[in-house]
Design a protein around this nucleic acid. Structure first.
Lengths: 158, 158
DNA sequence: TTTTATAGACAGTCAGTCTGACTATATGTC
DNA sequence: GACATATAGTCAGACTGACTGTCTATAAAA
């Protein structure tokens, strides 16, 4: 009740970002479920986002997704059990394994990309012409700046 | 058109939204910790965001935050144990209790709002002049549209 | 008064993340 | 070739933050 007209301008940026993400994710993963991939969860996206066509190591995926090996191993394990990934020994390194997409995994990955685009388009149609592009480019710029800051912090070598 | 699509489609909108939120939340809750409120976690924000000055019921808070009573009760319980909330019987309804901010809770709430603004300003300085305002207003418009859509779905008001 | 709805409590589950300790394999240096 | 160190991955344990389901107490309505 408190929040319909008044707080529109009082919403925190955090709320706006999170709420928009929440709505988007709901539609994307709802669509994915409707497309026959109901067992794919949001957390799995970091695997699909970073996995290489020839397969990737868990450590590699973990680093790219900025999470621990253990957490990534858990995600890979579940996607493997669900039939989206297969894990094979890395011929180049006896310690390593490669996780790579199965045919079903490829299909899911494609669906995920398509749905992301589709939902973004849906969102764009809620706004006046061109505003979604503007929103996206500003977000992109912000993200780039934030990544630069983080990068400098991590590897500032004089 | 030709050149734009490359940088543009590299990242999904979902990634941009989530990443920006993640960075923002890290700074806000880091700042809160530095300000002496280290025991406040992100999930608690839904309590601070929605609680009324005179106190609110758990069910009420749950509804506004779109989560279950149980989840909200858990958050309220933890904030109570930490001294940010006190729970008193609702004089108007023998079944109900009211959770309301203690003095420390008020202080934390103020710090949270201040920090949100401060971090938003920090972010704004990473972008060319006026772009954060543009970003915010587009996000605001999108959020309003999404809420309207959801609102129509739930309670079609003529 | 009896029935039904509401507020909250209690118990248990699950997903997703973390840390820390461990094994197996590679690699580089003497 | 042997030892030290680094890397890939696993196992065990913990915690957060959400969920469902069931229960009691109370209020409101018929």
């Amino acid at each position: 009740m408190t929040g319909e007209n008044i707080s529109r301008s009082e919403r925190t940026l955090g709320y706006l970002l999170r709420h928009a993400y929440e709505q988007l994710a709901e539609r994307v993963y709802g669509g994915l479920a409707a497309a026959g991939f109901a067992d794919i969860r949001r957390a799995h996206s970091s695997v699909f986002r970073h996995i290489a066509a020839a397969g990737s190591r868990v450590s590699d995926l973990a680093e790219r997704a900025h999470m621990t090996k253990q957490s990534m191993a858990y995600l890979v394990e579940s996607l493997t059990a669900l039939g989206y990934l297969e894990v094979v020994p890395d011929p180049a390194d006896g310690r390593a394994k490669l996780a790579r997409l199965t045919a079903r995994g490829e299909a899911a990955s494609r669906a995920l990309v398509d749905l992301s685009r589709k939902v973004e388009d849906e969102f764009a149609q809620l706004l006046p012409d061109g505003q979604m592009e503007a929103l996206r480019s500003h977000l992109d710029a912000l993200t780039a700046q934030l990544e630069d800051e983080a990068g400098e912090g991590r590897s500032a070598r004089p």
